[in-house]
């Protein structure tokens, strides 16, 4: 009589190919997925001709290579939120115009926008400044 040796029992499904496939899937999802959380800042478009109407009574923030001016007075980026907040308190929905000189990169502009939005600015627009 032949008795089967229990040690010789083989698994029906081998694990190794399964793991291979799972690894490949893992790499695919790791490389193909993005985790950037997008945020947005709304900017109004001011036309150069009709600018005077929208600019009237607006808060003017000038961003130049050396720093920031708020309504003509130099201000540090850290103090911008508080300083702009004082102007915005006086009148609700006051437009804020950001004038950017050439040579200023977008990250700096976005930092400025961030602070203005934090101060309660609702009507933001971007304009060209003086050319160097």
């Amino acid at each position: 009589m032949q008795i089967q040796d229990p040690r010789e029992r083989r698994r029906i499904v081998s694990l190794t190919p399964l793991i291979d496939v799972v690894f490949i899937l893992l790499f695919f999802f790791m490389l193909a997925s993005t985790f950037v959380q997008w945020r947005s800042i709304d900017l109004g478009l001011t036309s150069p001709e009709g600018a005077s109407a929208s600019v009237e009574g607006a808060i003017l923030v000038r961003v130049h290579s050396g720093g920031l001016d708020l309504n003509g007075r130099p201000v540090a980026l850290e103090d911008l939120s508080a300083a702009a907040g004082r102007y915005l308190e006086r009148r609700d929905g006051q437009p804020v115009v950001v004038q950017a000189d050439e040579g200023v990169d977008l990250q700096r502009l976005v930092d400025v926008f961030d602070r203005l939005v934090a101060a309660g600015a609702e009507d933001l627009s971007l304009q060209g400044g003086t050319r160097p």
């Binding site: 959380q37 997008w38 900017l43 478009l45 950017a100 050439e102 977008l106 502009l109 976005v110 971007l126």
Partner: peptide, 27 residues
């Protein structure tokens, strides 16, 4: 991107009929 280039692009968008621009940023 330089602010001058952004303004240039905004100007082109405006002349093409855009009224509002939403600037996308990352958190």
């Amino acid at each position: 991107v330089d602010a001058g280039r952004i303004l240039e692009v905004m100007e082109r968008l405006r002349s093409a009929g855009a009224q509002e621009i939403t600037l996308l940023t990352a958190l």
